[in-house]
Design a protein around this nucleic acid. Structure first.
Lengths: 212, 212
DNA sequence: AAGCATATGTTGACGCTGTCAAGATATCAA
DNA sequence: TTGATATCTTGACAGCGTCAACATATGCTT
């Protein structure tokens, strides 16, 4: 009933911080009810403003969705950075953690992941520039890491780097999707599936490189 | 304006073959406008009946979507059977063809593939029994083939069969999705990506088994 | 301090959607 | 012939995204 407003208690005509309030509420609504349950009207209602108030902060629903997805990419990239910044792990163990981390992120935020990598946004070329700027580095990073893994002898050197990174990412993406779309796999299989994939992608031979 | 009706030309109150007419038109509409453009009202309009006529043949929109997806599974299983029934191919070549065939099917029918394997149907447990009966054999087949590939020495014997089939299918699914969702990959990369994946999954050693 | 542009909020309205209820018409079995 | 059943119709409703018009607060310029 009573919405949190900044500064004072008296309800003012202007909200004061509607954009970020909307984003937070949208994230919550997304997590709770899924993308289908996320309507602008319900969102506005939840935040305590009229149906069209959000239009002063987001051009349309698509822009709101892009903004949410954008946050997701930032968040995931931090998670990934934390994994890569660990010290004292062999390349293979690091890759294993990365793989597990990716799937876990998707499993923990299924609706967000669907938004970040789903056709709702990408298929109809409706991604905002802000979203692209947040997402593309994530794609490039995958290629760079693949190149590194190849040079470390972790992955086969004779495969084209771009293709290899498309395949390995495709595998993570596919497993994530099978999981969050509730088809053919469930959470209790995650760890074993990840390990299986890592085994397939990494060479069993030559492990005498220094870490990192 | 004038819709095809069976038997005679005089427009009769009853359509005569509405269910299959709807399914065909829905498939077309799906292919042309995507899942977002597929509304029951437009569909009814296109077929030349009133908005609620389809409800006498499908309980709701979900049942129509399930029926379309069901056709997709039947169709894909025939494609797959044709590949497996080929003679004179080495196990590896056969697997390669299967992999390419899977991705091609998805790339040629992106909207249908999205329906068959997307969360629209599966995530909220809304699949009809008919759809399940068409889809599950496809999943099981994947496991059985994986078992065979392992015994043929094509894939590593020491990996759990279910996990291995989840990972290999996950890879195909992931590549298909990256492709049809228009993210990170496009059709010109398909063949190279498939070959790369097949190389990773199949042993380079020991190829002296008889075909099939 | 006054005035005005701009940012941010509101209600009203439109067309689209899925779907239910009630009534019309055709088909089929007894 | 009759009555049940299948099929198709119009009317209605709530929910959706979004535009237009209007209201109010904020902030800059003079």
């Amino acid at each position: 009933m009573s919405q949190l407003k900044p500064k004072q208690n008296k309800p003012s005509y202007h909200h004061g911080d509607l954009r970020s309030t909307l984003l937070n509420a949208a994230n919550l609504l997304l997590k709770e009810t899924g993308i289908e349950g996320l309507s602008l009207r319900k969102l506005a209602d939840k935040v305590g403003v009229s149906r069209t108030a959000p239009y002063h902060h987001f051009k349309d629903k698509n822009q709101l969705l892009c903004a949410i997805a954008e946050q997701g990419f930032v968040q995931w990239q931090q998670d990934a950075a934390n994994i890569f910044n660990q010290t004292g792990l062999s390349p293979k163990d690091k890759y294993r953690q990365f793989f597990h981390g990716y799937i876990s992120y998707a499993a923990d935020n299924p609706e967000l992941y669907d938004l970040m990598f789903g056709r709702t946004i990408w298929k109809q070329n409706s991604a905002t520039n802000e979203l692209r700027n947040a997402a593309y580095p994530s794609f490039n990073h995958q290629v760079e890491m693949t190149k590194k893994w190849q040079s470390q002898g972790l992955m086969p050197k004779d495969e084209n780097t771009l293709r290899l990174s498309q395949v390995t990412w495709g595998t993570m993406h596919g497993i994530a999707r099978l999981l969050i779309d509730g088809i053919y796999a469930d959470r209790s299989h995650i760890d074993e599936m990840c390990d299986c994939a890592v085994n397939l992608f990494t060479q069993q031979i030559i492990q005498n490189q220094e870490p990192n």
